[in-house]
Amino acid sequence: MAADLSRYDDVLRLLAALPHHVPALQVVVVNGSAVTGGWDEHSDLDVEAWCSGDAATTYDAVLALVRAALDVDHVWELPEATWPTGRQCFIHLQPDAADLSRPTRLVDVVVQTTPERLTMDTRRHGTPMVLHDPNGLLLLEDDDEAQMQAQRDQAVQQAVARRQTAAWLVERAIARGDQAEATALHLRLAVEPLVRLLRIQHCPARHDFGLRYLRTDLPAGMAERVEALLPGPAGSAARATSSPHELLTVRSRAAFAWQDEVLAQLT
């Protein structure tokens, strides 16, 4: 079933008309959860555009038109260095986006200079909703598989090489009573690498998507197993323990043991 984007109708009309006002725009698409799944009443609208010439100039023109045409509460602009060939911002069309008592209206816009060859991997990003591409510049094709395989291989090799150092760092922080440090290290060295390995095993095209989309990308029940390893109240895996240190120790060791299982299968 197609996502219901009706609460963004005014934005979509503006986006469709933008190229008439900003001729440098060559391609404008909607992507993100609107096309990959998971869209709900609190999803933002992900917009990606490509242009000829200087992307910053086109971005400024697009943002000025949006401000003039829509009731913009505020804009978060990412630093210029975020994208080597473009700019990104989050346009809030209502105050207090964290107030989920009403549907969210927030637009994530990225404007980049059109590369010599513009492609999009639908395995990773879904099939985009194309609002403007009169010259057919956007090609839907898979990313370079050799390059992706090299990235996956490196991730596995690093997980193997880092395994003992990572566990030592977490255990040491727990033993010292440094709960904040231990929690951060547990997430960074135990949970996140585990999820990367699970992704390599079960959804290799999205191996680098981190902790997002676990319920759609991993086999049924696996997201819940990962969540049971996160910091928080005692669950079924740690009912016999009570202190935060004890809970984190149990969960960290369980995460590393799961890493070992997946590494044994991958290597």
Rank of each mutant, 00 (worst) to 15 (best):
M1Y: 13
V11P: 03
L12S: 08
L14G: 07
A17V: 13
P23I: 08
Q26D: 11
N31H: 15
W39N: 06
D44I: 01
V47R: 02
V47K: 03
C51I: 09
A64V: 09
L65P: 01
A68D: 15
L70Q: 08
P79N: 10
G86D: 11
Q88I: 12
D96L: 12
S101G: 14
D108L: 07
T114H: 13
T114M: 08
L118C: 04
D121W: 10
T122F: 14
R124E: 14
R124F: 10
R124T: 10
H125G: 09
D133H: 05
G136L: 01
L138I: 04
L139W: 02
D143H: 05
Q147L: 04
M148V: 01
A150S: 05
A150V: 01
Q151I: 00
V156A: 00
V156D: 03
V156N: 02
Q158E: 02
T165N: 13
V170M: 03
A173Q: 01
E181P: 15
A184E: 06
L185P: 06
L187P: 07
R188W: 05
L189C: 03
A190D: 07
A190F: 05
P193S: 05
R196A: 10
L198R: 05
Q201T: 12
G210W: 07
R212L: 14
Y213K: 14
T216D: 11
D217N: 08
M222S: 10
L230P: 11
P231W: 06
G232K: 11
T241C: 12
P244C: 07
H245Y: 03
E246D: 09
L247G: 12
L248S: 00
V250M: 08
R251T: 11
S252H: 08
S252D: 04
A257L: 15
A264N: 13
A264D: 14
Q265D: 03
